[in-house]
Design a binder for these strands. Sequence first.
DNA 1: AGTATGCCGTACCGTACGTTACGGTTCGGC
DNA 2: GCCGAACCGTAACGTACGGTACGGCATACT
Lengths: 224, 224
Amino acid sequence: MQASLEIDGGEELTERQKDVLNAALRLLVEEGDRLTMTAVARRASCSKETLYKWFGDRDGLLTATVQWQASKVRVAPIDRARIDLPSLTASLEGFASDWLSVISSETSIALNRVAIARAGSDGHGLGAIVLENGRMALARRLKPVLEAARDKGLLAFDDAETAFRSFFGLVARDVQIRLLLGDGLKLTEAQIGRDAALATRQFLALYGANDNRDEGRRRKPPSS
Amino acid sequence: MQASLEIDGGEELTERQKDVLNAALRLLVEEGDRLTMTAVARRASCSKETLYKWFGDRDGLLTATVQWQASKVRVAPIDRARIDLPSLTASLEGFASDWLSVISSETSIALNRVAIARAGSDGHGLGAIVLENGRMALARRLKPVLEAARDKGLLAFDDAETAFRSFFGLVARDVQIRLLLGDGLKLTEAQIGRDAALATRQFLALYGANDNRDEGRRRKPPSS
DNA sequence: AGTATGCCGTACCGTACGTTACGGTTCGGC
DNA sequence: GCCGAACCGTAACGTACGGTACGGCATACT
């Protein structure tokens, strides 16, 4: 049945297997894509034979590791009953600072690096998984909030996808690409808070419906 | 004298050497980080001995290739005498669509992929070069425009760097990370034009000084 | 007790690739 | 014509690493 992408991963794993994957994950953060099966076996105090029995090959180990990390950050969908401008603002700031914390974490950087490195040659398996549990998961969590806010008349937009992508851009800016390229950018907790607040204010300025500004939102391109 | 980073590259190269680097570049786009010295030699119709004589080792070849590509995209600094809102808008749209074209090109994707892959383990040489000729070069070209517009009263901001990063985010959004991760995102010329226009409108909405809105720009965070 | 299963540690194999070495060819200078 | 330098093509070397095989040990089941 082809089991499209096998996103679930992380279930039906022995405790021992989780330990092994955690070791692989730590090694991945330290060594990047050049970790060796021998090193993983040594770090996890298991034999290479076991690695191959459990995960098939190096690719399988990497995939399982990425899925395992993904399954750890899965969050409960937010249940939000009533929403007003303060709670919307707080919610957006929460999303923004969560996202900034994630993309600036050593783990996320390492995972994105190997997924990007392998997206060039091999099948894009890892890239799809990382994307699905990163950007796409964020969109799935944020869009209902945006749409609820629109229903309440707090936001105005035609397409939730477009609005989300603007929010994404205002939050991430150049942070992720700079970190991935090894720039020595340091994000303190305080800086993340300020950046999240700025991005939220800017997003509300662009998509907020509480007054008569509508620049850059629904106006169609003049002619063509 | 340590020659910090040796950014210039591309000068003092034989025509033949440029041919070799172009071959390496094409191969890098096709094969990604797993190109072999043998393959480069075969593609460039030169001997491996020559490759090692000219570039030292595999790392040197990769670095020279990236610098060579960087030296090709260097553009003349814009000379802009008088500036008004229409010309500022056109200029911003130009920057935006140029940047979208660059980051969605096969060459840029391939180069960023190998630089990111190698930023994990080795020294961040390639990452620094890519960053310097990508994001940083864009900032150097755009900031004078922003500041000239501020002098004319068309824009309002305290920090050109912050304004630039907002513009960067509004333009790039999730495009680069998705492409690097192998998402099948296709950017047509028309779509790039629309996205550039939208980003420009949104940027002007946030940082334009032609009316009384000031959300998310100079208002300081309430307390902390 | 005896046996089977699962796993650890390690030695081993095959291959891919970076790097070096070498013979042959072209070309500019005398 | 002769020489040396540069370079091409290819063979050879050394190593690193993915993947496999095997012996030993511990636990569980009969």
